[in-house]
Design a protein around this nucleic acid. Sequence first.
DNA 1: TTTCTTTATCGTAAAGTTACGATGAATCGG
DNA 2: CCGATTCATCGTAACTTTACGATAAAGAAA
Lengths: 132, 132
Amino acid sequence: MPLSKTDLFKPKDVRVAAMAKALAHPARVAILRELARQNECVCGEIVSAIPLAQATVSQHLKELKTAGLIKGEADGPRSCYCLDPDGIQLLMDTLDGLLGQMEACCGVPAPKTQTAKSKKTASGKKTTSNSS
Amino acid sequence: MPLSKTDLFKPKDVRVAAMAKALAHPARVAILRELARQNECVCGEIVSAIPLAQATVSQHLKELKTAGLIKGEADGPRSCYCLDPDGIQLLMDTLDGLLGQMEACCGVPAPKTQTAKSKKTASGKKTTSNSS
DNA sequence: TTTCTTTATCGTAAAGTTACGATGAATCGG
DNA sequence: CCGATTCATCGTAACTTTACGATAAAGAAA
């Protein structure tokens, strides 16, 4: 942005946007999927799985870490990465909030349900009082 | 990107990234929420609800339209926007695919009941045959 | 120690995003 | 027809993201 205007928006919207941004590159999505598949993964393996240079992959890993979606710890000269369950959960909750609102508006085509959404919607009093 | 490498990634990952990118700005999230609240909305109302210049809001609307998340039709000199149920559904399915994979890996945080059964049913869309 | 391996970081070029004012294009009201 | 209103688009400035090679840092192996 030419001038950072993020403080003009509601914190909730800023949070959703930040979460979404972490997913907004194919390489990062591929990394997350790889980690979901392997459960735990040395950096080199990830680099092999991604069609980008090592430096670039490292950069993407850093962003995912900053976003709280993955954790990384040193293991000798190597780095071992894995998904961060807390961050993933937060991601789901954050997106579910928005998706739920939109679904409610559009009219739900098919009640598929899953994840943590149904619970929240059921107990939630209403979708109107949102500001922060 | 310096050089567009999107064809090096799996189409599925590219799709997720594109969807996420549409949500990756607070203004666009705010617009979606406004449309979810109003169900139908003249452009001017949206501009009033967003702390940005008219030209900028129009630009964000265009991106959301390109992403397939909203529809817009002319109404006299005005433009009337609303959520596109098909796009929203696609967004949900797309994200659910990834989120389900990650959740399955992390282990669901609060599974008081039967774990394996419910999880499988919930996320079991077709996580196996993934390559495109 | 010296060397190799592994990964993070730096510097930087290319491309994309975001924001705005100005300008068009279309419609409505007179 | 003339002016006002509404919105999309253009042009452009400021900033961010993406990608890579080069290099640094740190442990393992020799």
